[in-house]
């Protein structure tokens, strides 16, 4: 809510505040989603039609890489691995 940030958005103060609040809520839900993914079997769709399965571990703040366990590759199972986010198109997991 700094003056610089408000100038960047170019809105009135209450609009800027509401937008910032919404952004915070969206970010919080995203982080909770990542927390919910932890330890779950996850299916990753990578570039060029590659699909791999792994157990979701963690993600970093800047969305650079995902850490996964038990990554199944055609060459065998990697106990721990990092997947570059730029290679990942999407991933999905089940909640119960």
């Amino acid at each position: 809510t700094s003056p610089r940030f408000q100038a960047l958005l170019g809105g009135r103060e209450e609009e800027v505040g509401a937008a910032q609040e919404a952004r915070a809520a969206l970010r919080q839900r995203y982080l909770r989603g990542l927390a919910a993914a932890r330890g779950r079997p996850t299916h990753f769709s990578l570039r060029a039609g590659v699909r791999v399965d792994a157990v979701f571990g963690a993600a970093d703040v800047e969305a650079v890489a995902f850490q996964v366990d038990a990554l199944r590759t055609p060459l065998g199972v990697e106990a721990a691995a990092l997947l570059r986010c730029t290679d990942v198109l999407a991933f999905s997991f089940l909640l119960d």
Binding site: A37, A63, C85, L89, A90, F91, F93, L94, L95
Partner: peptide, 12 residues
């Protein structure tokens, strides 16, 4: 009754 969560990365 299960929920499937899909995350589509922003760059894609």
């Amino acid at each position: 009754e299960k929920v499937s969560i899909s995350v589509v990365l922003g760059h894609a």
